[in-house]
């Protein structure tokens, strides 16, 4: 069994890694990685904006953002992907490559979920921080940027990380619209071999697990560093140039 797995990897590692490139679009693990990283990088800032919009008092911000979150949470991702894939070319009259479709759908879907996490984090901080910030003269957005978000996002890091990991796993759904990412490549191999499905999909699961584990571990390390800094187990004294100098008294 182990021998099977190793031989499959040995025979097909290039396909698994970069798909059919250069004879086709970039695929395999590289595509999964790029798709994941881009989705997360785009969804995260969007989610913060969505969260702020959902807490705004202006109906122009409140209603569209609420509708977006409700729809993204209410519709299965697979359906959303198929919708976007079939409807958007009709609406805008041009063809979009599968990769872009997948990226856009994932960004919107994840931003909706993440925005709820961010909103929870902001609301959990309580009035006091915002009161103090406003009393000092900060604008609402200034208070958010310097005071509220650094705390809220840090507090919700475990939840945010879960969403990131979900994003990575959701890239597998690109399979249904022929995005040649890792799952697609694994399926190709399986269709060739036909007799070793378990081994092939074991490799697939292992790769996803390693990627997600790396992300989780990186987040844990980051969390610990920030906690140590804020709890002050690192030294609480200032660097030398900022310490107050005692004046010497001239006789």
């Amino acid at each position: 069994m182990l021998w099977d797995i190793l031989s499959i990897i040995q025979d097909n590692w290039l396909l698994l890694l970069i798909g059919q490139y250069p004879n086709g679009p970039l695929g395999g693990f590289a595509a999964t990685l790029i798709l994941s990283v881009l989705s997360i990088a785009l969804a995260f800032p969007l989610s913060v904006l969505l969260a702020l919009a959902r807490m705004s008092r202006s109906p122009f911000l409140l209603w569209p953002s609420t509708a977006l979150v409700y729809i993204a949470r209410g519709v299965p991702l697979l359906m959303l992907i198929l919708w976007v894939y079939f409807m958007v070319p009709v609406l805008i009259g041009a063809n979009i490559p599968g990769f872009v479709t997948m990226l856009v759908t994932l960004v919107i879907y994840e931003a909706a979920f993440l925005s709820e996490v961010v909103r929870a984090g902001i609301m959990a901080l309580g009035r006091g921080q915002m009161d103090a910030a406003r009393a000092l003269g900060h604008s609402y957005l200034g208070a958010m940027w310097y005071i509220i978000l650094p705390q809220a996002l840090y507090n919700m890091m475990p939840s945010i990380l879960s969403q990131f990991v979900s994003t990575i796993k959701e890239t597998t759904l690109g399979y249904v619209i022929n995005v040649p990412e890792l799952t697609f490549a694994a399926n190709q191999i399986n269709n060739q071999l036909l007799t070793k499905p378990f081994q092939v999909f074991f490799i697939l699961a292992l790769v996803y697990y390693l990627v997600c584990w790396t992300l989780s571990h990186a987040a844990t390390v980051l969390e610990r560093r920030i906690a140590r800094k804020r709890a002050g187990t690192t030294s609480g004294t200032l660097p030398v140039e900022l310490q107050p100098q005692t004046l010497t008294v001239e006789p």
């Binding site: 006091g128 921080q129 009161d131 103090a132 910030a133 406003r134 009393a135 000092l136 003269g137 900060h138 604008s139 005071i147 650094p150 705390q151 840090y154 804020r230």
Partner: peptide, 20 residues
């Protein structure tokens, strides 16, 4: 309003320091 507020110092019962 922000400028006006910055000219009025306010000290809270629960301190409300920024923990980060």
């Amino acid at each position: 309003l922000n400028h006006l507020r910055s000219r009025i110092g306010f000290v809270f019962q629960s301190f409300n320091l920024f923990p980060h």
